[in-house]
Amino acid sequence: MIPRPFAYHAPDSIGAAIALLSDFGDQAKLLAGGHSLLPMMKLRFAAPEHLIDLRRIKGIRGIDMQGDEISIGAMTTEREILASPLLAMHLPLLVETARQIADPQVRYKGTIGGDIAHGDPGNDHPAVMLALDARFVLVGPHGERVVPAADFFLGTYVTAIEPDEVMTQVRISKPAVGSGACYAKLKRKTGDFATAAAAVVLRMDRGICADIAIALTNVAPTAMRAEAAENALRGRPVEDAAIAEAGDLAMAACEPAADLRGDEAYKRAMAGQMVRRALRTALSRCTG
C-alpha cells in the first residue's frame, strides 16, 4: 500500500495546470479528491510520475444557478452537493445521488468532477449526468469546449478529455417544473459500488409520459442510457405493465461483467429492478 515515487505539483491556476499537463503528457495525472486515484497508486496499479493537485485553483469549486442553468464547479465535493440548499430545491436528484456515494469520509474529499472524469462505469455521477443531459466544460491549451455527457463516456476509464485538458465545470439545465427523478442504487454495503443502479428523470403531462431519461450505472463498460426503455414509455401512461416492460428493455440493453457482486444474470436482473424502483419513485415525485 505504498505508491511508487512521484513528483507533486499544486498549481494555483488552470493555466498553470494545463502547462504542467502539456509538459508531462501521459506521465501526469490530475488529482481532485483522490479517492479513486490514490488507492490505485497505493496498489501500484497506477504510477504517474507527476501528480497535479487541483485544490489550490480558484473558481472551479461551488454551486451556482443562472436562469435555468445550474453550474457546479468540478472540484465541488460530494459533501457540498449534499449540503446545498440550491440543489435541494432545484436538483434534488443530485443530492439523492451524492448521499448514496461511498461514505462520509469519502464524500468530504471526493469531487463531482473527479467522479465523472475518472470514466469508471461504477461511479454514480456518470449515469445521472447522462439522464440529466449534463454538459462538461473542458479547458485546454487552445481554450474551452463544452462536451455533452452523451458524447463524453467512451469506454472504461476512457473519456473525451484530452490529456492536456482539465474539466472545470458541470452544467445542468434545471429539470422542467413538475418532473420527478430518482437514483435507485443496489449496493452490498456502505462504500460499495453499485451492483446495479438506475437514474430516472420523468416528466408527466396529464397522465402521459411526456419525457423520460433512464441511465444505468455499472452494468456496461460505461454508464449508459436505456433508450429502448425510454422509447417504450414515452407517450404512454406509466402503469405497472409499462414499468415492468421498461425494466425488461433495460435488462436487454446492458452488458454487465461478473464479479463478487453477482454474475451477469443477477446484475442484469438488478438493472431491471433498479429501473422499476427508480421509475415508481420518480413517478410518485412528479407533480405534472
Binding site: D103, R188, K189, T190, G191, D192, F193, L260
Partner: peptide, 27 residues
Amino acid sequence: GQELPYDEQGNVLGGTLMDYFLPTAVE
C-alpha cells in the same frame, strides 16, 4: 456478507474491504 472465496487457480478473492464485509452503523 463475510467470506474469502477462492478461484480454481487458488487466487483468494475478496481480500480487501471493498469486498470483505465490515458493517457500519448504516447496515
